[in-house]
Design a protein around this nucleic acid. Sequence first.
DNA 1: TCGGTCTGGTTGAACTCTCAACTGAACATA
DNA 2: TATGTTCAGTTGAGAGTTCAACCAGACCGA
Lengths: 145, 145
Amino acid sequence: MTAVTKFTEHLDRQLQRDSGMPVAYYEILVALSEAPERSLRMSELALVCHSSRSRLSHAVARLEKEGWVQRQACPSDRRGSIAVLTDRGFAVLDAAAPGHVTAVREHLFDVLTPEQLRSLAEISQAIEQGLQTECAKVRAEMVEF
Amino acid sequence: MTAVTKFTEHLDRQLQRDSGMPVAYYEILVALSEAPERSLRMSELALVCHSSRSRLSHAVARLEKEGWVQRQACPSDRRGSIAVLTDRGFAVLDAAAPGHVTAVREHLFDVLTPEQLRSLAEISQAIEQGLQTECAKVRAEMVEF
DNA sequence: TCGGTCTGGTTGAACTCTCAACTGAACATA
DNA sequence: TATGTTCAGTTGAGAGTTCAACCAGACCGA
């Protein structure tokens, strides 16, 4: 846990300092930039970013105020709304990416052997699966009520 | 990162739901409970909890309002202040611990093989050391000014 | 002993996150 | 068509974190 918190804190500080945004917001921009048309429905975006609807809504509001993202109405479902990465947003992301990528490589990939990286991938997957079943359990409990 | 965020979110939610406190505060109580006299200077406590002074100050203020911790003046250094775990705080910790420990075992130790646990320990140490030198680098830069 | 600097700790403002409540649209069923 | 339920997303309040500014005590060289 110490390693993880130090690592994420380092990344967060780096990105905040150099690009004025927390990692969570950077990830939103990345997700949008990789999507077709640089746009995603809010719910999809929440899924991709492992974020709650509420959190994403607040975050996108901030990104929109910054002029990095725009919200559009969804034509097929009038409840929906679609977040689109603007050119300015793309430019900001483009400027932020190298520093972030370097930081990740420097403190994660460069300090581990290929063997350790393989092992870490397996470990992560095991933990994730363990929690997956947990989430299913919780959902099952919910249904009981 | 997905595994880590899901894992910590799960722990946080569990502790918040069952004991009304975030993991960060639980860790403060644990640190105090393990210290001699159940008390530590704020700076020591910050070190043990990997927390900034500011964060700890706010957190202890909240714990004090709850009646779980008390602040005392430090006799040897009049700048210092000492946080002491109260009996009520200890009782709360005692009640919170089993659930938290179970959650950690269930989703971390039980899903990994002994071999994977050993590997994870090594990996974590490597990452931490990599960041240690980084912190030293930053500190060195600071000195330049 | 006097200034300058460093250290321990606190504070307030700005920001992010969480949680619960809410709006409006879609869907199902009678 | 009316009614109840589910779904997508937003909102506001409350809580935690961060950052920078600050106070007061300790330390140190002249």
